[in-house]
Amino acid sequence: MARELALRDALNEAMSEEMRRDETVFLMGEEVAEYNGAYKVSKGMLDEFGPRRVIDTPIAELGFTGIGVGAAMNGLRPIIEFMTWNFAVLAFDQIVNNAAKTLSQSGGQFKCPIVFRGPSGAAGQLAQQHSQTFESWMGNVPGLKVISCIDPADAKGLLKSAIRDDDPICVMESELLYGYKGEVPEGEYLVPIGVARVRKEGTDVTIVSYNKMVLTALEAAEELAKEGISAEVIDLRTIRPLDYGTVVNSVKKTNRLVVVDEAWPFAGVSAEVAYEIQKYAFDYLDAPVTRVNSADTSLGYAPTFVEEYLPNPAKVIKAVKEVMYIKG
């Protein structure tokens, strides 16, 4: 049996279920307890678990992230919520220099089972500092795993897997899509980390994406279908480790690839996927790999800037037609 759940409620279920099953799991962050979460992801959790396990922090990202890392090294399983990944930049020292490296620099003596989670990506007219994506940044760091997924069912199963995982994991959500609804199965289930999912099967072109751009890709695929073009849409779901196999297999079938990535173009997920495809599916490609990214600029406030900056279905359709050598 499945029911419709919003992304925020699916994430809430994931955390609550894991906290019921494991006493060492706790949630810490700004406004997570009494305010019920800046985006209501932790609604009701203070009531159920109490202030010992659902903890409001002062506005001190570096400090509370480091406290999480220390607690993880000393036997607990913290979930650290960032109101947005943009604020997590203040805590990158703890994520990159400590969480990611503790196991290595201690020669395997100290693991760091911790989840850092919060929304990533543009969310309307929020201007430069509140509109960035962080999958590529965090995905660059050995020692970390990175999940970025907005499908409620998948996001729930992935977050549960992340909380049980013994490695430090960054989970990227979406401010705009916390209310996005999907079918979520009843009962206990996990979704494995590091496995992509084909959201729509197709034969003419592969569109690879993740997070909210998956919806943009699906919308474009629907439009393309009206013109007789069959697009396969792959949701990466995990950025590190990236499931290259699913992408390569798809490209072997469609012979064309468009990557739709909300990140900036330079040295990002889109570049990484393109590299792997030229390496492992070179002989299958009928056209150069093409990508649709956000503009290589900071995002300004005005609506015209937002429109110009972000990938959208029209831009994706244009890119698909380009790799299919269709004019107009």
């Binding site: 010992r52 480091g66 220390g70 607690a71 090294m73 036997g75």
Partner: peptide
């Protein structure tokens, strides 16, 4: 990393209290 262990030690103490 100069000073990075200060929040970490605070978290180690946090875990002791939690336990």
């Amino acid at each position: 990393i100069v000073g990075a262990q200060i929040p970490i030690g605070t978290g180690i103490g946090f875990a002791e209290k939690y336990k």
